[in-house]
Design a protein around this nucleic acid. Structure first.
Lengths: 232, 232
DNA sequence: GGGACTGCCATCAAAGTTTCATGGTCGCGA
DNA sequence: TCGCGACCATGAAACTTTGATGGCAGTCCC
């Protein structure tokens, strides 16, 4: 599902321009031109990002932002403020109220789009095209390939998902149950001990060339992926 | 603990200005003036935010940013790019590489500070479970690690739970029965004397490097965890 | 049908836990 | 101040729990 962006802007020319450009980027777009509608719309539609004009009929943008930050459901909703007010004090105020970014009109559309991408990227760590690295480990989601210290490593699908999950939370210990839920799926009936077996296979594959073991067993607790060199 | 900010900037005048201003805001600040040092420093010190100049001797800022995004450990580290290049294409590129914000020189210090606050605010929830500290003791629930004075300490599961419990109520004395109930479980039948043995092992592990004993024996009452240096 | 992969089990080894016997220490009253 | 009893520390031994390993059967797919 493409991210949904809400534009809160009363100048219809600008609103249209934004809508058009953002839709061209593949986003779903909603717009409202009145501050007091904004909060309702946000509650009803739960957008992934809000672009908020400072000056609005109804409720001023800054008040909307403040309100969004007050509500638990929207505390983490990325907000980009848009304004004609170039004064520094306003920008500072906008950012401190809880806006995540602040653009002054006139702005470049390309920059706005890039900033939108940056905000969405941070808000929802989505599919990453770039290969991940962790220590001397390289994990390429796109081609589903893994290498350690330059040498390719062959993993079965389950081991790959297991490693992928662990790489996302370096050093953290997960119980077998947590791993089953995260890697196998929440409602799959698999013996907890089976995790051991896959950990063993993963270890065997990763340490094929006698590299130090990256997987730490924590007795009575679970497993963690560590940087080689970390204390046992 | 105040957030740690790393400044990667080769113009020493600007670097000093930033350092001074950020420290005045209460942040801890590190700086390096060379791109190739930046990655090492980040790995070693794990800052909460990086301010990165685009043009650097050594490695260009944009390459550092790209590298940070590839490593699992720094994927979520907020990055603010700083540059003299006002061209739109550069901003877009910087943001798309993974920078979270982008400021063009000259910029207002107040705005920079506001943007730093905005980035740190958003990154906060990422740092989920803070490790507990008590004196020179460090107890990290997530990675299930314990260290004393920087040296790792190995504990068995029971000692870990015991220490975890004691750390939560510093200085308080608990009877063996209370400890059994809290650490072992309310309906476990274990000799009260067994607590002694675990206390002994915990002491041995914590004082391995001849550190002062943190566990106080209270005759006829039980045990307590004290700050070393507290009166017996 | 062969190869790759998965899940399960039995077994062994290692790590950790509990208990016990013994000796040391402390506080207190004679 | 001495002696006593209560209390705690310690080492070792028996026992339990937990993880690693190798093997194997069932599936899926080419």
């Amino acid at each position: 599902m493409e991210p949904l962006i809400l534009i809160v802007e009363d100048e219809s020319a600008l609103s249209t321009l934004l809508r058009y450009n953002l839709q061209a980027e593949g986003y779903r777009v909603l717009d409202v031109d009145d501050g007091s509608q904004a909060l309702e719309t946000i509650q009803a539609r739960q957008p992934d990002l809000v672009i908020l004009d400072w000056m609005l009929p109804g409720l001023p943008g800054i008040e909307i932002c403040r309100e969004l930050r007050r509500r638990a459901q929207t505390r983490d909703l990325p907000v980009m403020m848009l304004t004609a007010r170039a004064e520094e004090a306003d920008r500072v105020r906008g950012l401190d109220i809880g806006a995540d970014d602040y653009l002054t009109k006139p702005f470049s559309l390309a920059e706005l789009k890039a900033r939108v991408r940056a905000l969405l990227r941070r808000a929802q760590p989505v599919a990453q095209k770039e290969p991940l690295t962790f220590g001397d480990l390289l994990l390429d989601l796109a081609s589903r390939r893994v290498a350690r210290g330059g040498r390719p490593v062959h993993l079965g699908p389950t081991e790959f998902r297991l490693l992928h999950f662990l790489v996302q939370y370096p050093g953290q210990v997960f119980s077998r149950e947590e791993l089953l839920a995260a890697v196998w799926g929440r409602d799959i009936h698999v013996e907890a001990r089976t995790v051991d077996v896959h950990i063993r296979r993963l270890r065997a594959a990763l340490n094929a060339d006698a590299s130090p073991d990256m997987i730490r067993t924590v007795r009575a607790a679970g497993y963690a992926l560590d940087l080689p060199g970390a204390p046992a």
